[in-house]
Amino acid sequence: KKYKVVEVKENKDGTVELVVENENGEKKKITLSKEELDKLKAGDTVELK
């Protein structure tokens, strides 16, 4: 499934919390490390299994 990044929030521990949404409007929260996030920004599309 493809999800669009709608919100990006940095946590104090250096991880980043993303809120992503698919075309049905379903939202998910995922947490990434700073390194994983470096290639993402709001409006990008991510694929989740």
Rank of each mutant, 00 (worst) to 15 (best):
Y3E: 01
K27C: 07
E26Y: 10
L48M: 05
K4Q: 07
I30D: 00
N11I: 07
V20Q: 00
D44N: 04
E10V: 08
V16M: 11
D44G: 03
G14C: 14
S33F: 12
E23G: 10
K41L: 06
L18M: 08
K34N: 10
L32D: 00
E7P: 00
E17L: 09
G43C: 10
L48T: 02
E17V: 12
E36L: 12
D13M: 02
E23I: 06
D13Y: 03
E21P: 00
K9M: 08
N22W: 09
V20S: 00
K12H: 10
V5Y: 02
K29F: 14
K39G: 15
S33I: 09
K39A: 05
E26P: 00
T31A: 04
K27E: 04
L48Q: 03
V16N: 02
V19Y: 07
E47K: 02
L18P: 00
V6N: 02
L32E: 00
T45Y: 15
T45R: 03
T15V: 04
K4T: 12
E17T: 09
I30G: 01
K4Y: 11
K28Q: 08
E7K: 12
K49R: 02
V5E: 00
L48R: 00
K2Q: 09
K9S: 08
K2A: 06
K49S: 15
E47V: 11
G43A: 02
V6F: 05
Y3F: 07
G43T: 02
V19F: 09
T15A: 04
N24R: 11
V46R: 00
K39M: 07
E10S: 08
V19R: 05
K41G: 08
N24H: 11
N22L: 06
V6Q: 02
K1V: 14
K28S: 11
I30C: 06
L37V: 13
L40I: 14
K28L: 14
T31V: 11
G14Q: 01
L18V: 07
L18Q: 00
V6I: 12
V6T: 08
K39N: 15
D13K: 01
V5C: 15
I30K: 01
K1R: 09
L32W: 13
V20Y: 14
K1T: 10
K27W: 10
K28G: 06
K4E: 02
G25F: 05
T31Q: 09
K4N: 03
V6A: 02
E26D: 12
V20F: 04
E21W: 06
T31W: 11
V46M: 08
N11V: 07
E7G: 10
V8H: 03
E23M: 06
D13P: 01
V19A: 03
G25P: 00
K27S: 07
G25L: 03
V19L: 11
V19W: 12
I30T: 01
L32A: 07
G25T: 01
K12I: 11
V46P: 04
T15L: 06
A42G: 03
V46E: 13
E17Y: 12
K9A: 08
T45V: 12
N22K: 05
D38G: 15
V20M: 06
E36A: 13
L37Q: 09
V16R: 08
K2G: 03
E21M: 08
L37T: 15
D38P: 15
Y3N: 01
N24D: 09
K49C: 15
D13S: 02
K2N: 06
E47M: 04
E36M: 12
T31H: 13
E35D: 11
K27M: 12
D44T: 02
Y3L: 05
V16K: 07
K2W: 07
T15F: 05
E36I: 12
T15D: 05
K9E: 02
D13I: 03
V20L: 10
D44Y: 02
D38N: 13
G25M: 03
T31C: 14
L40Y: 15
E26I: 06
K9W: 07
V20R: 00
K2I: 07
V5M: 02
K12W: 10
G43D: 03
L40W: 11
E17M: 12
E47W: 08
L40P: 14
G25R: 04
E35N: 13
K4M: 07
Y3C: 10
L40C: 10
E10D: 13
E23F: 05
K12T: 09
K41H: 07
E47C: 15
V19I: 09
K41C: 11
K39Q: 12
T15C: 07
D38F: 07
G14L: 03
V5T: 01
T31Y: 12
V19E: 08
E35A: 14
L40D: 01
A42H: 10
D44E: 10
E10H: 14
K12E: 10
K1E: 12
E23V: 08
T31K: 12
G14M: 01
V8G: 01
E7A: 10
K4A: 04
K39S: 14
A42Q: 06
E36N: 15
D38A: 07
K27H: 12
K12F: 10
G25H: 10
V6L: 11
N24W: 12
V46S: 09
S33R: 14
V20K: 00
E21I: 08
K28D: 04
K28W: 11
E7T: 12
L37N: 14
V8Y: 06
K49D: 15
V19M: 07
D44C: 07
D44R: 01
N22R: 07
N24E: 14
K49H: 15
D13C: 09
N22Y: 03
E47A: 05
N24I: 10
L32S: 05
L37M: 11
I30H: 03
N11W: 07
A42N: 13
L32Q: 02
K27A: 07
V16E: 00
V16T: 08
I30R: 00
E17R: 05
K39P: 14
E35T: 12
V20G: 00
E17G: 06
E10T: 06
K2C: 15
N24M: 13
K29E: 06
K41Q: 08
V8D: 00
K41W: 06
N22I: 03
V46G: 11
E35Q: 10
K9V: 10
K2L: 12
K29A: 11
V19D: 03
I30P: 00
K2F: 06
K39C: 13
K34P: 08
A42C: 13
L48A: 03
G43I: 02
I30N: 00
D38I: 06
L18N: 00
T31D: 02
A42P: 15
N11D: 04
V20T: 01
V20A: 05
K29T: 14
T15S: 07
E36K: 12
K9Q: 11
L32H: 01
K49W: 06
N22D: 13
E35W: 15
L18I: 11
E23P: 05
E7N: 07
N11Q: 09
V16I: 10
V20H: 01
E7S: 13
K12D: 11
K49M: 15
V19N: 03
Y3D: 01
L32T: 10
T45C: 15
K39W: 05
G14I: 00
V5A: 01
E21R: 05
S33Y: 13
K28M: 14
K34E: 11
N11S: 09
E47F: 10
K4I: 14
K12L: 08
E26L: 11
D44K: 02
E21A: 09
L18T: 02
K29W: 13
K49G: 15
K1M: 10
K39V: 10
A42L: 13
V8E: 04
E10R: 05
G43E: 04
A42D: 11
L18H: 00
A42E: 14
G25C: 04
N24L: 12
K2R: 06
D38R: 08
V16L: 06
K9R: 13
K12N: 13
K28C: 15
K34Y: 11
L40M: 06
V5R: 00
L40F: 14
Y3V: 03
I30S: 01
T31R: 05
V6M: 10
V19T: 12
K2Y: 09
T45G: 03
T15Y: 12
N11K: 08
K34Q: 08
E21G: 01
V16D: 00
V19S: 09
K49E: 15
K34V: 11
V8F: 04
L48F: 11
K12G: 11
K12Y: 08
T45P: 03
L48V: 05
E23N: 04
K34W: 13
G14N: 06
E23W: 06
T31I: 10
T15W: 11
E26R: 04
S33N: 13
K27T: 07
K2M: 11
K29M: 09
Y3W: 09
K41S: 06
V20N: 00
T15N: 05
V6E: 01
E35C: 14
T15G: 04
E21L: 09
K12Q: 13
E7C: 15
A42R: 06
L18W: 03
T45H: 12
T31F: 07
E10P: 09
K2D: 03
T45A: 04
D44S: 03
E17N: 10
K39D: 15
K49I: 15
V8N: 01
K49F: 09
V5K: 00
V46A: 04
G25V: 00
L32C: 07
E21K: 05
E36F: 15
K12S: 11
K2H: 06
K12M: 10
N11C: 09
E47Q: 02
K39Y: 12
E10N: 09
K41T: 04
A42S: 07
K27L: 13
V46D: 14
K9D: 03
K34R: 11
D38Y: 06
N11L: 11
V5I: 10
K27P: 06
V8Q: 04
I30L: 12
N24G: 09
K34I: 12
K39T: 14
L40K: 04
I30Q: 01
N11M: 10
V16P: 00
E7M: 11
K1F: 07
E10L: 08
V5P: 00
D38C: 14
Y3H: 02
G14H: 04
E7Y: 08
T45F: 14
K12R: 08
E36R: 11
G14Y: 02
E47S: 06
E26F: 06
K49T: 15
T45M: 12
E35Y: 11
Y3S: 01
E47N: 02
G43R: 01
K12V: 09
V16Q: 03
N22S: 12
L40A: 10
N24S: 12
K1Y: 07
K49Q: 15
D44P: 00
K2T: 11
A42M: 11
K41M: 07
K49V: 15
L18R: 00
